[in-house]
Design a protein around this nucleic acid. Structure first.
Lengths: 235, 235
DNA sequence: ACCTGAACACCGTTCAAGT
DNA sequence: ACCTGAACACCGTTCAAGT
């Protein structure tokens, strides 16, 4: 066997040195650049310039890696949510909810890990607390507060994860536009029997021109309206 | 080499014969019995008594299998939602939402596939239509209807998928009760600094004694209250 | 038209060995 | 204390060959 024409490395290669911080930063970068499927231990190790095994020194396995990556992303949301000074508690809840929505919609994988293990997710817990502190300013029972915060978080995370779902490969690679993709569905819908599907027909135009963020906001307003009613003792 | 002591099969084995219906039924059974991780093409093929390759005659891959399995489960929800005769549209929406919640909470994997491809999910589309037909009885613009149905579906599916998440192995195998599991979290929470986490402290008791179904219902009521207000022209 | 199963390219995880 | 990388057990998917 002939030796390789060039020797990319003189010696076995210098021992790499990482940190939990570096592991999480690169994991999130991989996720953001290429989606959930791109985060493998081999790809992450390559990015860190080391071997696969060393990642296990920092996290117990893939689940914990994702739990901690989630919390890493939430740090930013917490920062913006901590400094706001809204007079109205309902407005403050709206602002935090929108910030959380934006973070999750960009990263649909996050939805499945949010607050899954508060032991390793201090920022998740802090965000829950910040939302809850606003309900402390409303006239509610503690159970109503608990339910209200859970409802907001459930709606935000569930909706964002759903909306951020990866569209089919044709749209991602640019061989089909998002509009064409939506149009394809709407055409399918318009072809349905109008007698059996009156609602689908009635909202076909709305669907075709819809905006995810606007749709999220509209749903959030329904919850907040219900909450305000409850706080006013009218529900 | 000695021949095997017994011959389990005289000949190579009879050629198995399946159907899309059989594939989906067994896939759902596998999912229900042992969770998402248990659904592999090998395990499914073994259950069907055939080879791995034959499943690909019925579905293009795992994603389509899950899309179709989801629709298979939704058939039941559609059946119960079609026959109800509620006088009040809001009540009807509540009834359908609860039925959908029950189906998804038992099968958290379903959340990620619901209405992902209406081309192979006629029951998903039908359910969306049934919910929408109730909004047709309310005084709303078509955009408000579209947003309302989206909000309900997003909340139901998101919350159910979250609540149905597999608890840690210790709870599943019975070496730890659900109450002990919750208590472990609450203890962690109670140990937090009371000045920095007033909300978490205030709802610790509520969390410890909470019921998922009740929590879901409370959140749903907030959305429905907001919707009723909107239909009455007061929002 | 439908089924088979070996083969392929990948994955998360382990662990004896190194520094 | 921390890093390495071959090895293991498994996965979805393909495909030439069968019936």
């Amino acid at each position: 066997m002939t030796p390789p024409a060039t020797r990319p490395e003189q010696r076995p290669r210098k021992r790499a040195s990482h940190s939990l911080e570096a592991v999480l930063t690169e994991a999130v970068a991989l996720l953001d650049e290429a989606g959930e499927g791109a985060l493998t231990f081999r790809a992450l190790a390559a990015r860190l310039g080391g071997g696969v095994g060393s990642i296990y020194w920092y996290v117990a396995g893939k689940d914990e890696l994702l739990d901690r990556a989630t919390d890493h992303v939430l740090a930013e949301v917490v920062r913006t949510s901590e400094t706001l000074a809204e007079d109205d508690p309902i407005s403050a809840i709206r602002t935090i909810a929108v910030a959380l929505f934006d973070a999750v919609a960009q990263r649909p994988w996050l939805g499945a890990y949010f607050m899954r293990d508060t032991g390793v997710q201090p920022n998740g817990l802090r965000l829950y607390e910040l939302l809850g502190q606003q309900t402390l300013r409303l006239e509610l029972t503690s159970r109503q507060r608990f339910h209200a915060v859970s409802a907001v978080v459930g709606f935000v995370v569930g909706t964002a994860a759903d909306m951020g779902q990866q569209p089919p490969p044709e749209v991602v690679d640019g061989s089909m536009t998002r509009d064409d993709y939506l149009a394809h569905f709407v055409d399918q819908w318009r072809a349905l029997d109008a007698g059996a599907f009156p609602f689908i027909h009635s909202i076909a135009d709305d669907f075709e021109t819809h905006d995810d963020a606007e749709q999220f906001r509209a749903g959030l307003e329904l919850i907040l309206a219900g909450l305000r009613l409850q706080a006013e003792g009218k529900a």
